[in-house]
């Protein structure tokens, strides 16, 4: 199993200790040999051990243990309940209106954020995929939202979308029609749009860079061939570029599905009463991640929160699978 080894001279052929022929010199050689063998054989495992140990304890174990917790009565304020709950938590989930409402909100916000986000990122990437002056600065510039803490940007958008003196209403004023300002926290659609705007703002630039990287690795002669068909830039984007970068498109769809369905910070802090974690007075924009937080740490029912996490996990798996399939179909990539 060892790689090409030239040194140190392997004394394995020499008689091992006990058979005679000892002496300090040879013992040192044996010791070095052992060190060498240890280094070759076991050192690699020692080097990867920190990753696997830490990941096992703080990543994998909690994920699996979550399944155990979901079968228990883990209520922090009521230790008198029986230890095991069986599938009670899951049964309760099926009839829980809050859960279905949060699921509905999560999907609504997800649709309003992922679709525009990825489409605009594609357009932005194709803009950046030209010979540009100061190209690094454009790329760095569109990453400003990516490095900005979501907590900070959400607070800005929170002011932006305020009913009475918000900039959104002021900008919409001439087009808004009626005199009544929009109350962005009063109904589902408007609050979803507000939250989705925050998500879009944060991630368009990041996704554009992912697309740009893929676009630049498309072989140039593909475009030469396309010119014969007389494809303009717009057609080029949809007929050539997008199918050619399909793996990255699928990758971003999966990423935004995983991220979008776990949305937490934006809906939390958009709420004027953030600590309650209700996502609006009547849960207008409460997401599942937010509901998990509320059930676990406000209602102190960790068992039920764990069951919800599992449900969310399954939902993410299914939706990510469906989206991958859909994207591969729609973007018509190489088979």
């Amino acid at each position: 199993m060892s790689t090409t080894r030239a040194a140190p001279p392997s004394p394995r052929s020499a008689p091992e200790r006990g058979t005679g022929g000892s002496g300090a010199d040879e013992r040192r050689l044996t010791w070095r040999n052992r060190l060498y063998r240890f280094d070759m054989r076991y050192m690699p495992y020692l080097m990867i051990a920190p990753f696997f140990l830490l990941f096992a304890v703080f990543g994998l174990f909690p994920l699996l243990f979550n399944g155990v917790v979901s079968l228990r009565n883990y209520e922090l304020d009521d230790p008198t309940l029986p230890y095991w709950a069986g599938f009670d938590n899951f049964a309760r989930l099926a009839g829980d209106e809050d859960f279905w409402n949060a699921l509905y909100n999560t999907f609504g916000i997800f649709l309003l954020s992922s679709l525009p986000q990825l489409l605009l990122a594609l357009v932005l990437a194709s803009l950046l995929n030209r010979r540009l002056r100061a190209q690094t600065w454009w790329r760095v510039g569109i990453l400003l939202p990516y490095v900005t803490p979501i907590v900070a940007s959400t607070m800005v958008f929170s002011v932006f979308f305020s009913r009475d003196f918000g900039m959104a209403n002021w900008l919409l004023g001439p087009f808004g029609g009626g005199d009544a300002p929009i109350d962005w926290r009063a109904d589902k659609l408007h609050s979803w749009i507000a939250v989705a705007t925050m998500v879009n703002w944060k991630w368009i630039g990041y996704n554009a860079l992912l697309y740009l990287a893929a676009m630049q690795s498309i072989p140039r002669d593909v475009y030469e061939a396309a010119a014969i068909d007389g494809a303009g830039p717009w057609k080029q984007l949809w007929r050539i570029t997008v199918p050619m970068i399909q793996p990255v498109v699928v990758f971003t769809v999966v990423l935004s599905t995983i991220g979008g369905l776990q949305l937490f910070t934006e809906p939390m802090l958009f709420d004027l009463n953030a600590q309650a974690a209700t996502g609006g007075p009547n849960g207008e924009w409460q997401t599942i991640a937010q509901l998990i937080y509320k059930v676990g740490w406000k209602d102190l029912n960790l068992g039920y929160a764990a069951a919800m996490s599992w449900a969310l996990f399954l939902i993410i798996l299914v939706v990510a699978g469906i989206n991958t399939w859909l994207t591969s179909r729609l973007s018509g990539g190489r088979k």
Binding site: R130, L132, G141, I142, S153, Y223
Partner: peptide
């Protein structure tokens, strides 16, 4: 027939990019 990355950006491209940067910066400025 030229690959996009070999095509010099036109004024329109620069304008659209400038608008994008404006959208990126504005919340921070505000």
């Amino acid at each position: 027939g030229r690959a996009p990355q070999d095509t010099p950006a036109g004024l329109g491209t620069y304008l659209l990019l400038a608008v994008t940067i404006l959208f990126s910066v504005f919340p921070l400025y505000w």
